[in-house]
């Protein structure tokens, strides 16, 4: 049987798994293979969908569930992430859960997720990000859509170290990766993949 190489937006970079011992100021990791699906509630069904999925309908707050994380995008819309199910099974699971209250659109192959951590994270992000990311405003779980380097970014604060996940359109992944690696270079940067 033929062997297939799974191609993801940044797989051509040939990144390898990090050792987790780097002293670099910034750590950037490509997170390929995530299952990603966008959920849309029908008119008047926002609360119903949120209840079915066990997630919050409030803006700018991520809900971390046992099997997935939901980031609200706009009224009645969320982007959901899971570690498995990029073959479409995640989408089907969500469709089953929300029933006729809304719609689910498979996005696993249309986004690239980049995890940024290290002591100099905020120094890098503050070069382009116009959001206030101080922990007094952006607590763990904070999420927002914004633009950085001219690219639309869905960002999510993972922990207080701080660590952020930055999700961009697949077609902008190279451009965004180029900017963020250049912006990180002065602090020392380690590049890896999950």
């Amino acid at each position: 049987m033929a062997e297939f190489n799974i191609v993801t937006p940044l797989s051509h970079l040939g990144l390898v798994a990090g050792k987790g011992t780097s002293s670099a100021g910034v750590l950037l990791a490509d997170r390929p293979g995530l299952a990603i699906a966008q959920v849309f509630a029908k008119k008047g069904k926002t609360a119903a969908v949120a209840k079915k999925l066990g997630i919050s309908a409030e803006p700018c707050v991520a809900t971390s569930h046992e099997n997935y994380t939901a980031l609200p995008l706009s009224p009645g819309q969320w982007m959901l992430f899971a570690t498995t199910g990029a073959d479409g099974s995640f989408q089907r699971l969500l469709e089953k859960q929300i029933g006729k209250n809304g719609y689910v659109s498979e996005q696993s192959h249309s986004r690239a997720a980049i995890r940024i951590s290290g002591a100099k994270v905020l120094d890098v992000l503050s070069k382009e990000c116009r959001l206030d990311l101080h922990s007094s405003v952006a607590d763990v779980g904070f999420c927002a859509q914004t633009t950085m380097s001219g690219v639309g970014v869905l960002m999510h604060k993972i922990d207080d170290s701080p660590t952020f996940d930055l999700v961009v359109f697949a077609g902008f992944a190279d451009s965004f990766w180029h900017w963020i690696t250049q912006a990180s270079a002065e602090y020392g940067v380690e590049l890896s993949r999950d």
Binding site: P59, S74, P75, R130, L131, A144, T146, T147
Partner: peptide, 11 residues
């Protein structure tokens, strides 16, 4: 009304 106060560059 949904996101809170944001920079003009997002609009």
């Amino acid at each position: 009304p949904w996101c809170g106060v944001r920079d003009e560059s997002e609009f």
